[in-house]
Each structure stands twice: as C-alpha cells, then as structure tokens.
Computed example of a mutant assay.
Amino acid sequence: MFRTEPGRRRGPVLALLAAASLVLTLGGCAADTVTPADARGEAKAADAARGSVDCAKVKCIALTFDAGPGKDTPRLLDILKEKNVKATFFLLGEKHVKRYPEVVKRIAGEGHEVANHTWSHRILTDLDASEVRDELSRTQDAIAKITGRKPTLMRPPQGRTDGTVSDVARELGLAQVLWSITAKDYSTEDSALIRQRVLDQAHGDGIILLHDIYGGTVPAVPGIIDELKRRGYTFVTVPQLLAPGKVEPGTVYRPEKPEQDD
C-alpha cells in the first residue's frame, strides 16, 4: 500500500500505471493520483471521521456535477431529494455562485457536498501560481460567504493539474478530485444517450462527471439513479467515498476503472 501524501514515492508499477492512465485520459495532467480505495486503506479508523456508508463493504459510486449552479439545478435538487441521493457539486464562482446564491445555500442545506470549480473556468495549468490562487480563492470566499464554510474539494477545469496547481491547492486546503465516468454531456442534449454512456462505464468506487448546466443532463439523472440502484450501487458524496480516509489538501484523487466490474 503506497502513501497518499503528494510528492511521496510509491511502488514503481502502481506509480507508472497511475501516471500513464492519467496522461492518456486527460492530457497535460502530470500529478500523481490516489484512488478512493487507497485513501480508505491508509486511514486510521480510530482518528478519522467515517461517513454513514462503508464503501469498503458496499459498492459505492459518487455522482458529481460541474460548472453550476444553473437554472436547472433546483429541478436536479428536487430529483436528488426524491431519490434520497447525495451528490457533490463543483461550483463556478463567476456568473454561477454569484448569480444563484439561494441555490448554493440549498445545495449545502440539503446535505450535498459543495466544492470549488474555480472562478472563471480558466485552465489552471496555463496560469502562474498567483493566477491559480486567484481562481480558487475567489470561489472559496464566495461560497463561504453564502454557506459559512469553505470547500475542501476542488476540480480543475478539464482535469488539468500540475505541481503548481497542487501546491496552491494544498495552501488553500483543497484536495483535487478527478473522475472515471463521463457522459460528455457538453457535446449532446440527448438525455437517453447521456444516461446510457454513464451506465456503460459505471463501476464500483467510480466518480461520475456530469454538468447541471446543459439541457439534456438533468432529465437523464432519474434513469441513471434508478438503474444503478437496481444494479446494487450506493450513491455517496466524494468524502464518503474516501472515508474513513481524510481528504488531504493538494492530493489528486481519481478512481481507476477496473477492466471488469462485478
């Protein structure tokens, strides 16, 4: 079992697999990654806060939404409440958090995880440290002003991260969360296709990437939830997926999709 702290050396085979997978999938992201299972495995149960679900024993999956809130987010929250599902929302500061403060308050109030997706969706690996800090800290402050709490998670736009981004994230108390399942809902409004793409890729310990700002996404969510529940999945937030592991600022978390999931 390798250590989860950023910058530590891990077993050579695991490190090469993680690095190769990330480069092939995301391009331009050079940071080492930690899987949910690794985070759980290294945690000390005696001093870590456990979520209400033990993902070491049940088949968990995390539903995440980027780039909102938007006009369809209240309907999404209605669906999640009806289905008794908690999700993780990576929010954009400019034109989103500022425009929909009541929706941000509702996301937090209904038990979902509120996270940071930068201020204006600039590609962080194209920026210097001060610019990365500005993109993240402005959204941290805007969310805290509404909810009373700064996020502990962030997702870099397009999943692009590097050492500078990791250093700034660590400074601001933010862990980085990538994904293993994407419907590419930015490219289609076909809700049936979005649903099928998610279902085709679903796996235990998976993190689903969707966007609550595109027209076809929210209508696809009920079918995604119903079918994955039928398959025996339990929906959790990202912190619950890692529990009893503690979120470590600066660390990049990304699930590895197995060749075959049972």
Rank of each mutant, 00 (worst) to 15 (best):
L80P: 00
G68E: 05
C60N: 09
A56T: 14
T139D: 05
K145L: 08
L26K: 10
H96I: 00
V85R: 14
G27A: 12
A20E: 07
D66C: 08
H96A: 11
A46S: 08
K95E: 12
C29V: 01
A129T: 06
T139N: 14
V97R: 07
K71T: 14
I61L: 14
G28N: 01
N116H: 02
L17V: 15
G51E: 08
L127W: 03
H96T: 05
D128E: 02
A48Q: 05
A45P: 03
L92C: 08
T35H: 07
E42K: 13
V23T: 11
D66P: 05
H121E: 00
E135L: 02
R99N: 01
S130F: 05
R122F: 01
V104T: 03
L80H: 14
I123S: 03
G109H: 06
A67M: 06
Y100K: 13
K145F: 04
A144L: 09
L124R: 05
S137W: 05
V114R: 13
I123D: 06
G41T: 15
Q140W: 05
L80C: 08
R133Y: 04
D141H: 05
K59A: 09
W119A: 11
C29D: 10
G70L: 07
I123V: 10
I143P: 02
V58W: 11
K59C: 07
R99I: 01
L92R: 12
E131M: 08
R133F: 03
G51S: 12
I123C: 02
T118S: 15
V97Y: 03
A62S: 12
G111C: 06
I123K: 07
E42L: 11
H96S: 10
F89Q: 08
E94K: 13
C55T: 07
V85M: 14
L77T: 15
A31S: 13
A37F: 00
K59S: 12
N116A: 03
V103K: 02
Q140N: 14
K83T: 10
A20S: 11
A129D: 04
D38K: 09
D134E: 10
T33R: 00
G27V: 03
